[in-house]
Write a protein that binds this DNA or RNA. Structure first.
Lengths: 224, 224
DNA sequence: ATACATCAAGTGGTCTTACCATGTAAAGAA
DNA sequence: TTCTTTACATGGTAAGACCACTTGATGTAT
């Protein structure tokens, strides 16, 4: 049952679409709130709330008494903006997906290495709970929760923050990826491999994870 | 000249302080907007705007018809929350600083390596503009802009997003750090070293940067 | 006794209207 | 020409009313 779209959500999506598509170009001034509210068909307080949210994500810069400026979100945005950008992936540069995969390939081996050094038993426990799952959504949930758990076990509080920023985007992508049986099979093997590595001394966790990421990137190449 | 604090800023700071200090514990319900507005001494629309911003940063979860829930921000927050947390560093866990330094030590060498491979000339140009600066603020500005430039030259759009999230926190820290003459001197040498590495083939940029970060972490140990 | 429907009260969401605070450009005065 | 004042645009805040959703309590039917 599709819920009616609320004015707040509508106006936020509308503004983002117009920013991304160039109606309001980067570094330009938005029309004033009163005009913009009229154009978008919501009231000014509702528009203001949307703008406050957008400003927190880095889409716009609001200064009292001056027109609100549209940011170049690639320049000014924070990582949290990905959550929104992924909804507009068709309007994104072609390299967004490969950039995300590259970023993952760089970061996740480091996280896993820290988890291995600092709290391996929690990861082993988590992986012991793995059962063969054929549902892509369930599978991707398990997979993502593994990344989350590793971030927590890294015992550096910044990694869970980063992984949180990637949750929506990678959930979006994982649903596509794990629809592919080969992807699920490769990851199932990985879970066994990495579980064993976590139980042993002197494992080369970083490289195991990196190789899995690189392999996964190749599977992505087959998919797109 | 100290500007009067605005209701919006006041109420946001007030809520954050109360969340961090446990007045509104993690996973608890906030009082309703009408009560909260009265408690904090602002009107409901002003409070709502603040809550919308806080929700975007991951501090609270707002659902229509239900009480607003205070998140465990370490669990639910994104990297952008650091910008706020750094203002409350005295209330933060003791390992926040060392975690930030560790994170930097992991990530920045990777960024530099990509910049070296993909767009070294822009970094060389930037570093050619380096002059001996004794003003800690100017110095830290130069230093941070170098990180930003490297993130851009990595040609992975995610890295500038991450660096943006770190801008406020690291600017805060850098002002302390570069007040120390030894810190400025060490970085000045690094700029020359890394500039040379960027002009040569087969440089071990990743390890040069990592060693500088590790050394910098040792200087931090002397400072705190 | 149990299950379902209804209602009330609490929650957040939106709208209307009015006024305040800041920034900036143009006009007027020196 | 420079400085000051004014007007108008901008964003910020307030007050009040009503709408939409959630949830628990109460009443009714089986």
């Amino acid at each position: 049952m599709q819920k009616p779209i609320k004015p707040a959500e509508f106006v936020e999506n509308s503004l983002i679409t117009d920013i991304i598509s160039g109606v309001y170009p980067k570094n330009s001034k938005l029309p004033g709130e009163r005009v913009l509210a009229e154009k978008t068909g919501v009231t000014r307080p509702t528009l203001r709330e949307a703008l406050q949210r957008l400003s927190r994500d880095g889409w716009v810069t609001i200064n009292h008494g001056k027109s609100t400026i549209v940011n170049d979100f690639w320049e000014k945005g924070g990582l949290g903006i990905l959550r929104t950008l992924i909804k507009y992936i068709d309007l994104m540069p072609d390299n967004l997906l490969s950039s995300m995969l590259e970023f993952r390939t760089i970061l996740f081996p480091e996280i896993a290495e820290l988890a291995y050094k600092r709290k391996p038993e929690a990861i082993i426990n988590y992986l012991d709970g793995f059962k063969q799952i054929d549902d892509p959504e369930k599978f991707s949930e398990f997979d993502w929760n593994l990344q989350l758990e590793m971030a927590r076990c890294s015992q550096n509080p910044l990694f869970p923050l980063i992984v949180n920023d990637f949750t929506t985007p990678f959930n979006h992508l994982a649903k596509i990826y794990f629809r592919y049986k080969k992807a699920r099979d490769v990851s199932s093997i990985y879970y066994k491999t990495i579980r064993d590595a976590f139980t042993e001394k002197d494992s080369d966790v970083k490289n195991i994870v990196r190789e899995v990421m690189i392999n996964s990137n190749l599977i992505w190449d087959e998919l797109v």
